[in-house]
């Protein structure tokens, strides 16, 4: 146990975590969840359905955006320091994973604390569906690591540091907005054909959409919409669905992280 605790990954993760909880941006991040979730539930008290949808969109908007931007800035700013760490007898994998874990944990913690404190105000929702509230928190944590992975991967690929911020905003815009416009267009264009499976696959291709669909199925919104027998419910709505959705989210986390690590291991610092 002591050995694991002293392993370079853990050492770097702990250092990174400590470094990040001192960062004021992480405080702002947590506070924004506290404030917005408080406001959303306060406004939406009459309609818990609407309120939970707004809360969901808050998470889907803020978590990827902040994880991308903060992750990329933190990682690219740390590259000169990584140069010093690489000169120590530890592997690059340890440095990369340590950074990833430490930073991700910091982000997740500040997200959970912000939302958790917000939930004290929004006991209404917590009462109505504690399960779906927990799922929302879980999905927020998944999305944090997913978009952190993506940001790390892009940073390892990028030649010009100045463009990274722009890339992140573009990526966020793509996943949060453009992708849905695309799905919308596809459905309107090919609406005469059976589209359930293609749309299902499209959902798996965007972690934000996937998270949204998973949560909506959980709060029975989609079942109400008349798709309890349909494919979404079948593949994503039940326990198996949680596994499929969870598997896809895990893949979304690990694939970019692995690609990023691979590039990082060969990268000249």
């Amino acid at each position: 146990m002591k050995k694991i605790f002293n392993s370079p990954v853990v050492t770097i993760a702990l250092f990174e975590f400590r470094e990040n909880i001192r960062n004021k941006w992480l405080l702002i991040y947590g506070l924004s969840f506290l404030i917005f979730s408080g406001i959303l539930t306060y406004i939406g008290t009459g309609d818990p359905l609407q309120a939970s949808a707004s809360l969901l969109n808050l998470v889907l908007l803020l978590v990827p955006l902040f994880s991308l931007v903060f992750g990329s800035i933190s990682f690219s700013e740390a590259l000169p320091f990584h140069e010093i760490l690489v000169a120590l007898p530890i592997s690059r994998r340890d440095i990369f994973l340590g950074k990833w874990i430490g930073l991700g944990t910091g982000l997740v913690l500040s997200f959970l604390l912000g939302m958790g404190a917000g939930s004290l105000i929004q006991f209404n929702i917590a009462q109505q569906g504690f399960g779906s509230y927990l799922l929302l928190l879980c999905l927020g944590c998944c999305l944090t690591f997913i978009f952190l992975s993506i940001s790390f991967y892009v940073v390892t690929l990028a030649r010009k540091k100045e463009l990274i911020f722009g890339w992140m905003l573009l990526l966020w815009f793509f996943f949060f907005v453009l992708f849905d416009v695309l799905v919308f267009g596809v459905v309107l264009l090919f609406g005469d054909y059976p589209l359930e499976i293609p749309v299902l696959i499209l959902m798996l291709l965007n972690p934000i959409d996937l998270a949204r669909v998973m949560l909506l199925l959980k709060i029975d919104l989609a079942a109400m919409m008349g798709y309890s027998g349909a494919l979404f419910q079948k593949y994503l709505g039940n326990t198996l669905g949680l596994f499929i959705g969870g598997g896809a989210l895990a893949l979304w986390t690990l694939l970019p992280a692995w690609l990023g690590l691979r590039t990082f291991q060969k990268k000249d610092l």
């Binding site: 949808a53 969901l56 969109n57 889907l60 908007l61 949060f176 907005v177 849905d180 416009v181 799905v183 919308f184 459905v187 309107l188 609406g191 589209l195 359930e196 749309v199 299902l200 499209l202 959902m203 959409d209 949204r212 669909v213 909506l216 919104l221 989609a222 919409m225 008349g226 798709y227 349909a230 979404f232």
Partner: peptide, 19 residues
Amino acid sequence: LWISRYPELVSLLASPVIE
């Protein structure tokens, strides 16, 4: 209106684009 015409749009329920 749309969702009753194109049921697959249920996947975009609560999407910011739709909002």
